[in-house]
């Protein structure tokens, strides 16, 4: 069995955490070849070669691959697909954009957000916002999979895989990149942070989200938000934790002013320790919390910030 793994490459840099977690999942399926694609991807390829369990790295550099546009990236993967039984990627927004396109071009189904490998054909994945776990067995010749990174540990470093270059496929030229609006932050990345502090509708405004951020900064944590908070404009979309946002499983998750809709729980209930602060004692978030505090978050969160650290 041979596995092709699409590395997560952003502006020439390897997203090590997401890629190394996908490598852990992929290793169970066979020899792992990592594909690093981008306008510049050589450095990312060299970094991927050091991940334990990677047998080979393919580097594809071309201007058309610069912004992970789905059409040229999918065409590249399809041009390489013949050598592999499995084509996999970490379940990032980039991969979720590209991999179903790859699957349809190969006339196979995609399996998204896989959380466990049972055998080479059989996988577990959450459905209904994680309220059920489905075990599916694929009859397709090539398995196309995205792995939910929060359920796999990152593979270590210390490998020394060989690195080869491959050419890009013809760019169908259907789309072009215009701009990225990426917030610069010194905080840890949400999906790999050890601690996440999240705010919900109860926070009430963008200004008041600063008390959530202050607690996060005191703990060296990432900041998350519920859909309600993002929809209300209190927090940017890339902070959203939940069924359709990011799925996180930190050591400690602190939810303040979040009621706990099932769509939010889907994104954080695998956290090791969950703390809920909410003034409504009936809030469903308390049913998944290890430690619950019925309190006004505007008093409790600043007090917590002061007393911790």
């Amino acid at each position: 069995m041979a596995v092709l793994l699409l590395a997560e490459v952003n502006n020439g840099e390897l997203a090590m955490d997401a890629t190394a977690k996908a490598v852990t999942a992929a290793k169970a399926l066979g020899d792992v070849t990592v594909l690093a694609a981008g306008a510049s991807a050589a450095a990312a390829g060299d970094a991927a070669a050091k991940i334990d369990g990677v047998a080979k790295v393919l580097v594809a550099e071309d201007a058309s691959l610069g912004h992970r546009l789905a059409e040229p990236t999918a065409a590249l993967i399809v041009s390489l697909a013949g050598d592999y039984s499995h084509i996999v990627a970490p379940a990032t927004t980039d991969a979720k954009n590209v991999m179903p396109r790859v699957a349809a071009l190969l006339d196979v189904m995609v399996m998204s957000d896989v959380t466990a490998v049972v055998d080479a054909d059989t996988f577990e994945r959450p459905i209904y916002a994680g309220n059920a776990i489905q075990t599916v067995k694929s009859s397709d010749a090539t398995k196309v999979i995205t792995f939910r990174t929060s359920t796999f540990d990152a593979a270590g470093e210390g490998g020394s895989a060989s690195v080869e270059t491959v050419g890009a496929a013809d760019n169908p030229g259907l789309s072009e990149w215009v701009e990225d609006k990426v917030a610069e932050s010194d905080r840890p990345e949400l999906t790999s942070a050890g601690i996440v502090v999240s705010g919900g509708r109860g926070v009430g405004s963008e200004e008041d989200f600063k008390i959530i951020e202050a607690l996060a900064d005191k703990l060296g944590a990432a900041v998350g938000a519920s859909r309600a908070a993002v929809d209300s404009g209190y927090a940017p979309n890339d902070w959203q934790v939940g069924q359709t946002g990011k799925v996180v499983a930190p050591e400690l998750y602190i939810a303040a002013g979040i009621s706990g809709a099932i769509q939010h729980l889907a994104g954080m209930k695998d956290s090791k320790i969950i703390v809920a602060i909410n003034k409504d004692e009936e809030a469903p978030i308390f049913q998944v919390a290890d430690f619950g505090l019925v309190a006004d978050l505007f008093e409790a969160v600043p007090a917590l910030t002061e007393k911790l650290g």
């Binding site: 399996m111 776990i133 489905q134 694929s138 703390v275 308390f286 430690f291 619950g292 007393k307």
Partner: peptide
Amino acid sequence: TPRLEVVKTSEPSERAAGIMVGSVDELV
């Protein structure tokens, strides 16, 4: 005809019940 055979559908693992704390100090 489905390409993915559903072998089984199961409940997600339940979290053990936690405790309520009375104050920020107790939480810390």
